[in-house]
């Protein structure tokens, strides 16, 4: 059975303990880049996106206790999106008052064109959220596998090559490729669930 996944409390629950600084550090590693790229997509310059990260992380720290950990009520993903969106909105209006480099009208123009200003925003967020979690989880477990196991997974699942072709490239039999792929995927899923099991 998946012992680790079943007994381990997910990161989101651990965050509610403000003293768990290991959890906070992990949280920042995972979600900081997500918020950063969200800000960049919102038309922000790097420095502004960095501010956004700082603000969103602070907000989460202050209000995570209020986040009801109940998958029925709402997912963490959406909650974080709301916070990020709100912070971005605030920053946007702040920037409008203190025009910098970019110039007001330019910002308005880009803001109109970027997908996040529309209903698609959350869809894109959802996809990036998953990608970010998977990227992080993949980095975490990468070293636990033999190179050829990892390659079998990567080439089939990520690059979308056929198991037969990959078997040939790696001089494995086809069955081993299937086993390798599924073994990595399972570990990957468990790792992701350690962070957010509402995904």
């Amino acid at each position: 059975m998946t012992r680790a996944a079943a007994t381990r409390v997910s990161l989101l629950v651990r965050l509610r303990d403000s003293q768990d600084s290991a959890a906070w550090s992990q949280f920042t590693d995972i979600y900081g880049p997500l918020v950063f790229s969200f800000g960049r997509r919102y038309g922000m310059q790097e420095a502004d996106a960095a501010d956004l990260v700082q603000e969103v992380m602070g907000q989460v720290a202050r209000s995570i206790a209020k986040f009801e950990y109940n998958p029925q009520l709402g997912k963490f993903r959406s909650w974080l999106y709301k916070i990020a969106k709100r912070a971005a909105g605030r920053q946007y209006s702040k920037r409008q008052r203190q025009p910098q480099g970019t110039g007001d009208t330019a910002i308005v123009d880009t803001l109109d064109q970027i997908p996040d200003a529309s209903v698609d925003g959350e869809k894109i967020w959802k996809r990036q959220y998953r990608t970010q979690l998977l990227t992080w989880a993949a980095e975490q477990i990468h070293d636990q596998f033999q190179p050829h196991t990892w390659q079998a997974f990567w080439r089939t699942a990520v690059e979308g090559q056929s198991p037969q072709a990959v078997a040939e490239q790696l001089s494995l039999n086809v069955g081993s490729v299937y086993v390798a792929k599924n073994r990595v995927m399972k570990r990957l899923a468990a790792k992701v669930r350690e962070i957010d099991d509402t995904l």
């Binding site: 880049p33 950063f36 700082q54 992380m57 998977l134 990227t135 990520v158």
Partner: peptide
């Protein structure tokens, strides 16, 4: 989402700094 892993992640030295900052400010 799995196939997205293939795309290059967001690299920024500024981001690194911010993350370190955030950690200590928390």
């Amino acid at each position: 989402a799995l196939s997205d892993l293939n795309t290059c992640p967001n690299e920024s030295s500024l981001l690194e700094k911010v993350l370190a900052n955030v950690k200590s400010s928390l």
